[in-house]
């Protein structure tokens, strides 16, 4: 009996092992860019209010230069925007359409030498994507009218959040919060199915843990037929 209890604990610990694994992966991951600039290790909550603010910042600021070709206006319902708000955002575009940049490609390549990348997948397309985006947005400094960014030396993108010219600490805090909101939104956009995935995943793991325990006892029962036979 004790042996069986121990084994049940073992199977339960398989489930716990998954959590341990997640923790270890999280703890041992060093947050740094390829040029070894440390990234701010913030946790993203995917809170709807923050996502909605982030969507607005994207719409008003980032969209000037960056498209999001895998996001459709109607899917913004999933972060809690009302149909009316979405109608205002999309204007006369169909609800199935995707946000396009407001500056022409030709203009952008004249200004920056290349067309700025699409942002739909940005939070997954960089190592530690969300931390990278947040640190990048908040690391701009100004030096004699020229912008610099230690996270991405030689970056062409201007200081869109105006953090380099923030007049005091409180406005700097404000900008950091906005940077976090827009990063939350980009994180959601890179994988809109993440929340449902984790929700289903929890049930699936619980299901298989219980099934494993039951199958363990079935196995013991079947094998107990052999106990009378000398080995």
């Amino acid at each position: 009996m004790i042996k069986q209890v121990v084994l049940v604990c073992l199977i339960l610990s398989t489930a716990c092992f998954n959590i341990f694994l997640a923790t270890i992966i999280f703890v041992t991951t060093s947050f740094a860019t390829t040029n070894n600039h440390p990234l701010e290790n913030i946790v993203f909550s995917q809170d709807p209010a923050s996502l909605q603010r982030g969507a607005m910042i994207y719409y008003d600021v980032c969209r000037i230069c960056h498209s999001m070709k895998y996001i459709r206006y109607k899917t913004l319902q999933e972060i809690g925007l009302s149909n009316k708000q979405i109608d205002t955002l999309r204007g006369d575009k169909p609800e199935n359409s995707t946000p396009e940049k407001t500056t022409s490609d030709h203009m952008l390549s004249t200004l920056y030498g290349q067309v700025p990348p699409d942002l739909s997948l940005m939070a997954k397309a960089r190592k530690h994507g969300p931390q990278y985006i947040y640190t990048l947005l908040t690391s701009y400094t100004e030096n004699e009218g020229k912008y610099e960014n230690p996270v991405f030396p030689g970056i062409k993108m201007p200081d869109a959040m105006n953090i380099a010219v923030a007049i005091n600490e409180s406005s700097k805090e404000e900008i950091k919060n906005q940077a976090k909101d827009v990063t939350e939104f980009l994180l959601w956009a890179s994988d809109p199915r993440a929340s449902i995935r984790k929700k289903i995943g929890l049930y699936v793991i619980i299901y298989f843990s219980i099934l494993s325990i039951l199958l363990y006892f079935v196995m013991k029962r079947v094998w107990s037929r052999l106990d009378n036979v000398e080995s």
């Binding site: 199977i11 398989t14 489930a15 092992f17 998954n18 694994l21 997640a22 992966i25 997954k124 995935r197 984790k198 289903i200 995943g201 929890l202 699936v204 793991i205 298989f208 843990s209 099934l211 494993s212 199958l215 363990y216 079935v218 196995m219 079947v222 094998w223």
Partner: peptide, 23 residues
């Protein structure tokens, strides 16, 4: 039955990667 048990334990670990850390 022993293989079924093994498959079930495998699915528990596999599900962690599929649902919580697929990337």
């Amino acid at each position: 039955v022993k293989d079924l048990f093994g498959i079930s334990v495998f699915f528990t670990v596999y599900s962690y990667f599929v649902f919580f850390n697929p990337n």
